[in-house]
């Protein structure tokens, strides 16, 4: 102990230097950790911008001499990607908006009622494999003669979006203060007014989180589409998968298509990083 007391002031300068060394070490470790992600996406971009000769070259070429922008043109011109993009926008947009309209009030109600059982249903829904919803709903849509329209996909995407929204909103409304709401209802506001004018404005950040996560998971969904989509109602993930199975596999356009599908989500991820992290640590921990 005595020894330490004497030594500590002497060590102060090396300690500062050690700290910067630590930081450089950490930065290096983080770069190593992130490198598989960066390399993957760089390679994805590279594949999408190369002609077949360059994509078949050995050793592989990262940056080609000639960029094959035509890959992107080809994806849109020959594979109907404008239509599929629009389908994706419609299905994801409708399923997310419907989920917000239904799910935000529900999250509020469940939080205030402390209806644990309703919450458990949502959680079990999260655990259920998507395919076990698909078989009965497929038969139902067939019976209702809805196959061939976008409606089956919009409806079945609610299986993804509603639980996310409800789950995140339950968690959010449980943490918002009750005092204002109680004061408002003592002043004679109806429950709907309390929700609309007091609870909802406070919950805006939570709604944004629920919106973004529902959007992303609906956009990415693949399994519902491969069963329910027809030639004209494909969403982007199904369209890109079909390119693989029906064309002679040429890598450039395929990678370009893959990038087009996932780019909107990646951009959103970078811009809304804070909301996504908040939603996944709160929401995912609770099963969203």
């Amino acid at each position: 102990m005595e020894h330490g007391l004497v030594e500590r002031p002497l060590n102060k300068r090396p300690l500062v230097r050690r700290k910067t060394l630590d930081r450089i070490g950490l930065l290096f470790a983080a770069l190593v950790m992130v490198s598989p992600v960066v390399l993957f996406f760089l390679w994805m971009i590279s594949l999408s911008l190369k002609y077949e000769i360059d994509n078949g070259a050995y050793p592989p070429i990262l940056i080609p001499e000639n960029f094959a922008w035509s890959n992107y043109v080809q994806v849109f011109r020959e594979n109907n990607f404008f239509l599929y993009f629009w389908n994706s926008v419609l299905v994801t947009g409708a399923a997310t908006l419907l989920a917000l309209i239904i799910g935000v009030p529900a999250g509020y109600g469940i939080a205030r009622l402390k209806a644990e059982r309703a919450a458990i249903v949502i959680m079990i829904a999260r655990m259920t494999p998507g395919l076990s919803f698909l078989i009965p709903l497929f038969l139902l849509f067939q019976w209702l003669n809805l196959l061939g329209t976008l409606w089956p996909q919009i409806i079945i995407h609610l299986v993804v979006t509603v639980p996310i929204v409800v789950w995140i909103m339950i968690g959010y409304f449980e943490t918002t203060p009750m005092e204002l709401e109680e004061a408002a209802s003592i002043d004679g506001a109806t429950p709907w007014q309390v929700f609309r004018l007091v609870a909802l404005p406070i919950a805006k950040p939570g709604i944004v989180v629920a919106f973004i996560l529902a959007l992303i998971f609906s956009w990415n969904n693949f399994v519902f589409g491969i069963v329910l989509a027809s030639r004209t109602t494909r969403t982007l993930p199904v369209a890109v998968y079909n390119m693989l199975s029906f064309e002679q596999v040429s890598w450039g356009p395929l990678a370009a298509a893959a990038l087009i599908v996932t780019l909107p989500v990646l951009v959103l991820t970078l811009f809304a990083q804070k909301q996504i992290v908040a939603g996944l640590t709160a929401g995912a921990v609770k099963g969203g």
């Binding site: 992130v34 992600v37 992303i216 990415n220 199904v238 890109v240 990678a255």
Partner: peptide, 19 residues
Amino acid sequence: LRGVFVMPMMATPVAIALV
């Protein structure tokens, strides 16, 4: 860097799988 690290989780699985 943390933002970059989170990207795979949000990326479309089918698109990722093809690459």
